[in-house]
């Protein structure tokens, strides 16, 4: 039963990612990207990585997509004339893919599965990830902090008002 949901979610991910290739409107592409990222979060959850699933929803579908949408709206982009225009039916296809994801979530939450048979998911708990993160990988965490600081400074420098 988990396998069915897994492969359905994988199909949703690949369909949404493939739709980015052929849509014309940047907003629609952003919608498909949100769908793909959310479906990927469900894939992570089904593989047994609940921490990464939550992080995927928060960071990718939350923060990064807000950046994309903000830039699209600020630049006021028009639909381009460059690509084949099928599957540009606006919100319908993303809504359908999101509906599939939502139904899968309902099935997972309310235990509509027939029975948890011998098929089990090996879950790696967030505690193990945290111990690994702040144990042998502590130096890399510091390097990531420095990288984020450098990115922050670079963005502040590039977006300054007065040109030097």
């Amino acid at each position: 039963m988990y396998e069915i949901i897994f492969y359905l979610t994988a199909a949703v991910t690949v369909l949404a990612a493939g739709s980015i290739l052929i849509v014309r409107n940047p907003i629609h592409a952003a919608l498909y990207l949100v769908i793909a990222l959310l479906a990927l979060a469900l894939l992570f959850f089904l593989l047994g990585a609940p921490l990464l699933a939550a992080l995927q929803v928060m960071i990718y579908a939350g923060a990064i997509m807000v950046l994309f949408l903000f830039l699209i709206m600020v630049m006021n982009l028009r639909p381009t004339q460059e690509q084949l225009p099928f599957l540009s039916a606006g919100w319908k296809v993303p809504a359908f893919l999101a509906l599939i994801l939502w139904l899968e979530l309902l099935v997972l939450f309310f235990g509509l599965l027939p029975e948890p048979a011998d098929e089990t998911i090996t879950v790696i708990e967030p505690k193990v990830v945290g111990e690994s993160l702040f144990g042998p990988y502590l130096l890399v965490v510091e390097a990531a902090a420095i990288l984020l600081l450098a990115a922050l400074i670079a963005v502040l420098y590039l977006s300054r008002k007065k040109r030097l």
């Binding site: 593989l47 047994g48 990585a49 921490l51 990464l52 992080l55 995927q56 960071i59 990718y60 923060a63 990064i64 950046l67 994309f68 830039l71 090996t122 790696i124 193990v128 990830v129 111990e131 690994s132 993160l133 990988y137 890399v140 990531a144 990288l147 984020l148 450098a150 990115a151 922050l152 670079a154 963005v155 590039l158 977006s159």
Partner: peptide
């Protein structure tokens, strides 16, 4: 990481997310 029951895969993905966020902020301002 799940196949070998090892947390290193998730740690690697966290760092991948950090790098993506930094890259995307600079790329979007460019």
């Amino acid at each position: 990481g799940q196949y070998w029951t090892n947390a290193d895969g998730q740690v690697l993905t966290i760092f991948l997310t950090v790098v993506t966020a930094a890259e995307l902020a600079i790329a979007l301002i460019l």
